[in-house]
Design a protein around this nucleic acid. Sequence first.
DNA 1: GTCTATATCCAGATAGAC
DNA 2: GTCTATCTGGATATAGAC
Lengths: 206, 206
Amino acid sequence: MENNITITLSETELKILDAAKKVFVEKGFDGASMQDIANEAGINKALLYYYFRKKEFLFKAIFKQALHSFIPNLLQVIQSNETVRVKLKMFVDNYIDMLLLNPHLPVFILHELSRRPENLVSAIKELGVNPTLVLQNMEKGVVEAGGTAYPAKHLLVNMLAMCIFPIAAKPILTMLLFSGNDEEYQEFVSERKQLVYEFLLKALNL
Amino acid sequence: MENNITITLSETELKILDAAKKVFVEKGFDGASMQDIANEAGINKALLYYYFRKKEFLFKAIFKQALHSFIPNLLQVIQSNETVRVKLKMFVDNYIDMLLLNPHLPVFILHELSRRPENLVSAIKELGVNPTLVLQNMEKGVVEAGGTAYPAKHLLVNMLAMCIFPIAAKPILTMLLFSGNDEEYQEFVSERKQLVYEFLLKALNL
DNA sequence: GTCTATATCCAGATAGAC
DNA sequence: GTCTATCTGGATATAGAC
């Protein structure tokens, strides 16, 4: 199973990966052209093919990275020795902060997975994440802290939803709730770090 | 502002719109080809241009429709004479049911809006939805029913998030939580109609 | 209104010079 | 390794016959 090797990437290869990440995440696989990526990287288009041979291969390299950020390292937070409250706060804070830095990430991942779910099977395996344990810990942790039992899968989805959706739906929310004012939107999302946390506490009776 | 007219659409035009909806919503603007749409409609490609002149025009017709479904008619539910609890239940039930029938809708809307937010301004105006009143009503309704005050905009986003996200993230959730078993995923989403409702009640102390 | 044929363009991909 | 030049296919879009 461990057929990975570590290689040192050249300067150019790094430039390409950076550029490809930016372009793919913003435009999606179908909307991005190899010319776009070459321009962004400041190199010749043929070089892309020299290093990656096909658009698809370059894309897969990017997609894997992106998926790793998107599926947060729940294990680390949930399996830590903190109280449930602290864990929840840490998770929401860190995840929303990460998403604010990568605002296009959610829509990119959701769109590409919806177009080509096949990619997922292999990618998930490489992640090595098994959520079952995490879920059991969550549910037990809540009850032991005196909270109300709530199905762990639904709780996890609720948490992710409340963090991810406002980032994914930025354009429509900015328009609908803030008349297009971007600063108000940013402020709103920052507020959510505290408000989502409180919402979860109340819902779980913690 | 009212420069709309009502026209009767021909059989062929309806076939085209149906096909275009299916193809665009599944593949996105960049991923869909006019040939795809012609095939789906069972007609000649040139006919598409006869009726809509440009891919973009055909797309806009579809997008407008889709946006209307995606921004639910909150007004109707919220402004009704029911109790807050009933309103919440009705909203979650109806919205999740609609999304289950249109599983690609969320990602389609989010992706296209993220690619071309310009389209939004005009589309929103045509919707004629002003959420401010709705929001005030929600907040007041909760407090008057004996619940805990919670910022209405955040409440609205939480509700939408918990309904929309599990549909948008179907592939990854099916894989991560149900080892790829589709029926279990479907079952899970149906359960949410009740569980999201209860989650909201508890969080609002209702 | 509906079709066939075709023009035009652009994107992915390769060949080969340096 | 990096570039220029080029091939090839497929996509948008139009012309014109029926």
